[in-house]
Every structure is written in structure tokens, then in C-alpha cells.
Computed example of a mutant assay.
Amino acid sequence: MRPSTENSSSIKNAIDQTFSYRRKWIMTKSPTVREIFKEYPRFLDMPSLMDIEFSKLTDGKEDMFIRKWEGTIIPKLKEIALLEKKMDIRQLLEKADSQDDDELCYTMLKVLIHLLPPMPSGRSAAGSKCCVNSAVSYLLEFVPAGTSVISLLTESMKGSLKSGQPQLVSIGSLGHGAQYVIVAKNDSFALPLDVDNLTCAVDRLFKFYWLCNLQYPCQLSSVFSFF
């Protein structure tokens, strides 16, 4: 069925009925991202289905990140970060006081990565610090406004993306009508998101990992586990 007002309830019912089969297929056969959405294309053009799937996987927690990030988690992050003596964190907090929603979200994601840094994996302390400073690029990359979604899958553009795992790409600057896209460069897959802010884009990316049963990127494993 193609999504429409008339077909919406039937499609949701079909997705519900196929849940157990789909999860078994994904868990045991490990299909690629492209294969999953080829088999179940309605997840692409009915984004609410991803929320429903995540709700069934997490006992109804589909809106918890959206509800808690700005009102509860960010204030707590600020309190904890104020106790830190690291100059990098203090500079981020100084910026946060005058930022709009998307810029504040991005700043606090950076603060969270500093507080929950990637495991050094045998690197030196200096290497670990470098990893912390660059880890956010495994979550969100920026490309100029006007960049087409299809061009994100060209070899030259994929080469500029840090992660082989799915990540967010912002077409345009934060707070200036940016379009958010999930790009899985290893599968040559791009999913434009129907969201208008970074918080919702991060929420969608996290659910994308769960729906596809993907391993978190090691650079963000602590942060994704926190989510």
C-alpha cells in the first residue's frame, strides 16, 4: 500500500502484525540498512512507524528523549559541567547562555561527549583528548546549504564523512532552516528527516540504530548508551 489517510490504519496494523517476523529476520540475518528499507519501505514515507517500532522495542519509551532532553537532561548537564575545571567545557557553557535551541542542543551534545568520553582503547592521553574533540563529528557533520541529498552518496562526499555507521548530516547551518539527513555511507543510503530541529533529528537517529539493530560507533558508545 502507498501511504494515505485512507491506508494509514491498515499500514500500521500490517507493521504491527509483522513485528515478530521482522525482528527475528533483522536479528538473525543481519540485513543491511538498504535491505531493511527495501523490504519495509513504509518506514521511509511514514516516519511515525519508526516511533511505533521503537515503542514496542522499549516498552513505550518512544518519546522519552524528546520529553527529557531540553527540560531535564540539559539543566542537569549544566550543573555537572559547572563542577568541571576543564577549559573546553567552561568555554562551551559560556556559549550556551546565548544560543537558540539547535545551537544549544549541539553545544550540550559536545558537553556530554566531554563528560562521557570515548574509551581510549590503549591510546595515549593526548590521543584520547583528540578523540573527544572529534567524536561529535561521528554524530553530526555539516555540508553547505543547497547541497542535494543524492550528492551525499557520491564518493567524494562519502569520503568526508567520518563514520561508516549511520550519522546525521546537516545541510546548512544550525538555526537557519537546516535540513537533517541520516546517511549510512557503507550502504549508500540517505534518509531525509521530517524534523525541524536537532533534538528530534538525534532522537530519530537513535531509533534508526535500534530499528536496524546496528552497533553504536565506538567513538560515541558511551553517549549512545546514556541515551
Rank of each mutant, 00 (worst) to 15 (best):
V223A: 11
G71H: 13
Y40F: 14
P31D: 12
Y106V: 06
F226N: 01
T58E: 03
V111P: 08
V183R: 04
D16G: 11
L104S: 09
K29H: 13
C212A: 06
I26D: 00
L161N: 06
Y209A: 06
K61E: 03
T32G: 05
Y138K: 05
M157H: 09
T72D: 08
D16Q: 14
N186K: 12
D45A: 12
P120A: 02
L191P: 04
F37E: 10
P144V: 04
L116H: 00
S188F: 08
L214P: 02
F43I: 02
L161Y: 01
I113T: 14
E79M: 08
I150Y: 13
M119I: 14
P75Y: 02
M157G: 05
E141C: 11
R2M: 14
D203N: 14
I113Q: 14
Y216P: 00
V136C: 05
Y216D: 10
K158F: 03
N213T: 11
E70P: 04
N186R: 10
G146E: 00
A135N: 11
Q17M: 15
G175N: 00
W210M: 07
S137I: 07
Q165V: 03
Q17Y: 13
S121Q: 14
G127W: 02
Q215H: 14
P3K: 11
I74E: 12
M46I: 12
D88G: 06
Q91L: 15
G122N: 05
K61H: 07
R42A: 08
A201Y: 08
S170D: 10
S134V: 13
L83I: 07
Q167I: 04
S221D: 11
C105L: 01
A96L: 01
D63C: 12
G60R: 07
N13V: 04
L193I: 02
D196P: 08
F226G: 06
C212Q: 01
E141G: 06
A126D: 13
E6D: 15
Q17W: 07
L57H: 09
E103N: 13
P120M: 01
F206N: 10
S128M: 10
E103A: 02
F208N: 07
D100V: 04
K78V: 08
R90H: 00
E79K: 04
V143E: 00
K158C: 09
C131E: 08
E103W: 05
Y216R: 06
G122I: 02
K29G: 10
D196H: 15
L139C: 12
D102S: 09
K61M: 14
M46F: 06
R2V: 15
E6F: 12
A178E: 00
A14D: 15
Q219N: 08
M27R: 15
L211P: 13
Y138T: 00
E94H: 01
S4R: 01
L109M: 15
S55G: 04
A14G: 01
D102A: 05
L115K: 05
Q91Y: 04
Q179L: 07
P192D: 07
F208E: 02
L174A: 06
I182C: 02
I150T: 12
